[in-house]
Amino acid sequence: MTDQRIAIVTGANRGLGRSTALHLAADGTDVIITYRSHAAEAEAVAKEIGALGRTAVALPLDAADLASFDAFAARVLAALRENWGRDTFDVLVNNAGASGGTTFLETTVEDFDALVDVHVRGVYFLTQKLVPLMADGGRIVNLSSGLTRFTTPGMSAYAMMKGAVEVFTRYLAKELGPRGIAVNTVAPGPVATDFEGGRLRDDEQVRGALGSMAALGRIGEPDDIGAAIATLLRPGTGWITGQRVEASGGLFL
């Protein structure tokens, strides 16, 4: 039996999840990473974590497929026992998600339901399945978005889902507080990832326009968010719970 700190980061084969997993590993945390597709990317992240001297396991997970959550929890338990001799883990980062940018009048029921499945139902019920495996005194970070504070045309449905995540975070903090589990939300501003086809990563005009509206003069990079999440999860910050932390470089202040 080991008391090594163990985190689960969903959607960690690329983007914000990858950066979060690597920053946690750099802080001395072992990581179970999940991926929906692109298994080779996930294995590459696991190798990077290994190069940092930490243990990593990559498990497949479709965060929108609620019927698969029992089997996923069983795989997590098996991985914990095999790699750490434990039945519990310490940190959950609900990062997995999908973009959705259509105007209100153009959003279909199918578009809306797809976002609900991954960002609301998925986060709620995956957390429900995993919390029984979380050690008392554990930590949860749910990913939201700056779009719950400021508005961008075409993002109403996506922002609604993230608003639900923020409400869920506060309720979860209250219900899990007796176990010493702290629950918070990190809300990134515009970040240069492959979301929305990589527009914020590749379009210099868009990057410059949005960056000019931020106090720090640029849009975010994945490591800005991964570092912020890892910092919020470090020992000594466990008294912070039920909070929304926006990491947007001071956008639209």
Score class of each variant (00 low, 15 high):
Ile8Thr: 11
Val9Lys: 08
Val9Leu: 02
Ser19His: 00
Ala25Phe: 01
Ala25Glu: 10
Ala25Trp: 04
Ala25Thr: 06
Ile32Ala: 08
Arg36Ser: 13
Ser37His: 10
Glu43Phe: 00
Val45Met: 08
Gly53His: 02
Val57Cys: 13
Ala58Thr: 03
Ala58Asn: 03
Leu61His: 09
Asp62Met: 04
Ala67Leu: 09
Asp70Gly: 14
Ala73Glu: 14
Ala79Lys: 09
Arg86Tyr: 03
Val93Met: 10
Ser99Arg: 00
Thr102His: 14
Thr102Asn: 14
Glu106Ile: 03
Val109Pro: 00
His119Ala: 10
Gly122Gln: 04
Val123Thr: 15
Lys129Val: 10
Val131Gly: 00
Leu133His: 01
Leu133Glu: 04
Asn142Thr: 05
Pro153Met: 05
Ser156Gly: 04
Ala159Gln: 02
Met161Ala: 14
Phe168Leu: 15
Thr169Arg: 08
Leu172Asn: 02
Leu176His: 04
Pro178Trp: 10
Pro178Leu: 13
Val186Ser: 06
Ala187Pro: 01
Pro190Glu: 06
Ala192Arg: 10
Gln205Asn: 08
Gly217Pro: 01
Arg218Ser: 04
Ala227Leu: 11
Ala228Phe: 06
Ala228Gln: 06
Ala230Val: 04
Ala230Tyr: 05
Ala230Ser: 11
Gly238Asn: 11
Trp239Lys: 03
Ile240Trp: 13
Ala247Ile: 15
Ser248Ala: 14
Leu253Thr: 10
